[in-house]
Design a binder for these strands. Structure first.
Length: 479
RNA sequence: GGUGACAUAGCCAAGUGGUAAGGCAAGGGUCUGCAAAACCCUCACCCCCGGUUCAAAUCCGGGUGUCACCUCCA
């Protein structure tokens, strides 16, 4: 397959070092608060990437970190560790907070059909790995000690800027309030590997190290965890585009300096979900979570479809109108699939292969999920039997993860559970009282008493029940 | 200020040199006591200006606009 590589700024053929195993690393969440749906866009797209690689025949070992330590300052304030801030806010210990929000994160992922990575590693589990790497960097002269901390020396690198052509002189330090230049740094781009002296006091979590009691810098975490579980070579590293600089740039600097060779071949960056006012954040505007979507009556998988209809390398604007659009499309897809008859013939392998080839061509081309979704519609319109269509849809869903065939099967089951009497079939959700009302309405209609029929329909509607006439009966659903 | 990306119908969106996929909405129609659903039909000179080419939404140059990053963020 072809993937856009942020490191080379072009699409490349994806070739893992080991043809049978893709080693994949994902920057995981900082667990000091709930994830918003913008955070989750990245995880949805990375999930599709992972599932497509498996679909295409690769074995995949995927590792994700959980940042439960040392993330400095948050959106609008200056001078507190995010984890500590969360703990203070909720009067819990830092580790309680981490546990709580880690669980919440994976619960959100489950509702969005995002597979949990093979390895999930909290940053606080790997202090030994960080110390080993930092020691190695100091030995090789890539790091130095100053003011109690250990820094990476970016001037020792031939090429520091991997993802763009910046010049360190052009970096505007302090473009945001509360960001001050650290006087211990030898170069503007140098970054901390290990803190013993922090401008943030009351660090709840500290560990012993050869440089004193302290805690690791942010960037070292991903390098350490990746090497612990995936070894010296990584095939593909994923994350949100905001991480490209400085986080991923620094990961590359420290990893390759430590290892002495190229570390990761492909970089997969997902663009942000924006609101009409710009980047979505936790401190600005409505705090959009999976739970909020559910409260408002949206199946989380509608949001998944919403993301899939766009391309991961394009900014996506969230609005309720756009989500409604996706909801209608999702419901219609399920309804159309529900009309397919599973027992309609045997799978036609020729037709199956033809449709599948289109689907794969779409995803082989830099994970074009928008075209992959179109492939669903192509299947529904294809000149072949229902059994073939259902087999194709189930096959595609291994990657898309929309549960379309399952939902359609449920719908079909509900429809089949209708009760028939007097040649009139009522299909609903199995409530005899409502079935009876629907029958009363049918009687009224038969007697041409349309006022009464409409009155019953209105009464049901007031109770949130929608009645629809179909050939030989009626169906009803709860809104 | 520097750097990176993007700009296609009312909205989302595909398209990687040969006269614009798909979805939603909208309008028209069939069906229906009415409604809904379903089905059929209709709906774009691709931000602007130059250039290359027999041919450009697609390549090149220059604008304009939007977004992102510049040590917190997916």
């Amino acid at each position: 397959m072809q993937l856009y590589n942020s490191a080379s700024h072009q699409k490349e053929d994806f070739v893992p070092r080991d043809p049978n195993l893709v080693k994949m690393y994902t920057c995981g969440p900082t667990v000091y608060h709930f994830a918003h749906i913008g955070n989750l866009r990245s995880y949805i797209m990375e999930d599709v990437l992972e599932k497509y690689m498996r679909y295409a025949g690769y074995n995949v070992k995927r590792v994700m970190n959980i940042t439960d330590v040392g993330h400095l300052t948050s959106d609008a304030d200056s001078g507190e560790d995010k984890m500590i801030k969360g703990a203070k806010r909720e009067h819990k210990t830092v580790m309680d907070i981490a546990k709580y929000y880690t669980d919440a994160f994976f619960a959100d992922c489950a509702r969005l059909n995002i597979k949990t990575p093979d390895v999930v590693e909290p940053a606080t589990n790997c202090i030994g790995e960080y110390i080993t790497i930092i020691t190695g960097l100091l030995d090789k002269g890539f790091a130095y000690r100053a003011g109690g901390n250990v820094y990476f020396d970016t001037s020792k690198l031939d090429k520091y800027y991997v993802f763009n052509e910046q010049d360190s002189d052009d970096l505007a330090v302090g473009v945001r309030e509360g960001v001050e230049e650290d006087p211990n740094k030898r170069n503007k781009n140098d970054f901390v590997l290990w803190f013993t002296q922090s401008k943030f006091e009351d660090q709840a979590l500290k560990w012993d190290s050869p440089w004193g009691e302290g805690y690791p810098g942010w960037h070292i975490e991903c390098s350490g965890i990746s090497m612990k579980h995936l070894g010296e070579y990584l095939d593909i590293h994923c994350g949100g585009i905001d991480n490209a600089f400085p986080h991923h740039t620094n990961e590359i600097a420290q990893s390759e300096s430590y290892l002495g060779h190229k570390w990761c071949n492909y970089w997969f960056h997902v663009l942000h979900l924006n609101t009409s006012g710009g980047k979505m954040s936790k401190s600005k505007g409505e705090f959009l979570t999976v739970s909020l979507l559910e409260e408002k009556g949206y199946d989380p998988l509608i949001y998944r479809l919403f993301c899939l209809q766009s391309h991961y390398r394009k900014a996506l604007v969230f609005s309720w109108e756009n989500l409604d659009n996706a909801k209608v499309a999702f419901d219609k897809l399920v309804a159309r699939i529900a009309t397919l008859k599973p027992e309609d013939g045997a799978v036609d392998q020729g037709a199956f292969d033809e449709q599948k080839a289109k689907f794969q061509a779409a995803l082989d081309n830099d994970l074009n999920t928008s075209l992959a979704v179109t492939a669903l519609y192509d299947v529904l319109k294809a000149q072949t039997n229902d059994a073939t269509k259902l087999a194709l849809l189930a096959d595609f869903d291994r990657v898309l993860g929309l549960n379309l065939t399952e939902k359609a099967a449920e719908k079909r089951k509900t429809a089949a559970s209708g009760t028939t009497s007097g040649g009139y079939t009522v299909q609903g959700e199995g409530d005899p009282a409502i079935d009876a009302l629907v029958r009363q309405r049918a009687e009224a209609k038969k007697a041409k008493n349309f006022a009464e029929a409409d009155r019953i329909r209105d009464e049901l509607k007031a109770a949130g029940i929608e009645v629809t006439d179909v050939a030989g009966g009626a169906t009803w659903t709860r809104a």
